[in-house]
Simulated assay, not measured.
Amino acid sequence: MFDPALLKLLQLSDSALPIGSYSHSWGLETWVQQGQLSSSDELLAVLRTLLEQSIAPVDGLACAMAYQASANRLGGPDFIQLNQILTATKWAKEPQRASLDLGRRLVSLAQRLDWLQELPPGQYWHHCTVFGWLTYQLNIAIEPAVTAYLLSNLMSLTSAAVRLIPLGHSQGQQVLAALHTQVFEQARWCCATAGRADPLTHLGSFTPQHELACQAHQNLYSRLFQS
């Protein structure tokens, strides 16, 4: 059966989507240059930790909350506040700017594709909130949307690691496949938490070494990636 929503979700979560995500390493370049990330086993450990301690409880949850905001249309302030909190949470300059740039470019692309029925409230949007807002408008169910968002983040990180370490493409795919169960579990947690009365109280991460790596990236002697 033809499912246009599924096709759009697959296209949105493709790492080749022309919004610039392939040009960011999100701090991995720092660790590779420092010799702290040099194998597929280390990459698997890093991605599992980032997924469970940072990506899902911040951007994944925000994606689910933005989906709910798009579904409920409960005015702009809640959505605007969510983006403001994300900006404050992402204190390292490069990933903060990258997240906002990707959000802006995704809005622009969605408009050109005629996929965006209604602009998100406010003027500044993070990638995760635009993804959540847009997937509701495309009639994509919340759990597949958030699952795809989390996996696309890991795909972007894996793509950067394959080029940086370097790794074989098959090794990168093995790392991603090993994380499927965690991706599904974290997506379910994000969706369930977004439906609570106080989801903002659950939004937060604790990955100080990764945040320091992101901040240190701008001072590396040579860089292949923007963040």
Rank of each mutant, 00 (worst) to 15 (best):
Q53G: 08
I165E: 05
V58K: 10
L116M: 01
N83F: 01
A66L: 04
L164G: 02
H127V: 01
R48T: 06
M155N: 13
K90T: 11
G103S: 14
W115C: 10
A110P: 02
T135M: 08
A98R: 07
P144S: 02
N139K: 06
P57E: 15
S156Y: 12
P57D: 12
A71Y: 09
T87S: 07
K93Y: 09
V58F: 05
N72E: 06
W115V: 13
I80C: 07
E143A: 05
N153V: 14
P95S: 03
T89D: 09
Y136S: 11
P57N: 15
Q53Y: 10
K90D: 01
S70Y: 01
A110H: 09
T49D: 10
L74K: 10
Q68W: 01
Q171D: 09
P57Q: 15
T129F: 07
L113Q: 13
Q123L: 12
Q111L: 06
L74F: 14
R112H: 03
L113D: 09
E94L: 04
N72Y: 08
I85C: 10
C128T: 08
L150E: 13
P166H: 04
G75E: 00
Q111I: 05
L134Q: 01
N153I: 14
R163D: 11
I140W: 06
I142T: 03
P95N: 12
M65H: 02
G168N: 08
Q171T: 02
L164D: 14
G132T: 08
A145P: 11
N83W: 05
A62P: 04
L164T: 04
I165A: 11
L164S: 13
G75A: 03
Y124W: 09
P77Y: 02
K93H: 15
N139E: 15
L167C: 03
T129P: 15
N139I: 14
L86A: 09
R104L: 14
E94Q: 11
A88S: 10
L100N: 01
F79N: 02
P144L: 06
L106A: 02
L151F: 07
D59L: 00
Y136D: 15
E52H: 09
A71H: 12
N72H: 13
R97K: 14
A145M: 08
A98H: 05
D101G: 13
E118Q: 14
L82Y: 00
M155A: 15
S159G: 14
L134S: 05
R112W: 07
I140Y: 01
F79P: 00
I55Y: 15
A62F: 03
L82A: 04
A64N: 03
Y149I: 03
S170Y: 08
A88D: 08
G60C: 03
L102S: 15
L157H: 07
A141W: 03
D101M: 13
A64G: 15
L138K: 00
W91A: 07
A148D: 07
I140N: 04
Q171K: 11
W133S: 13
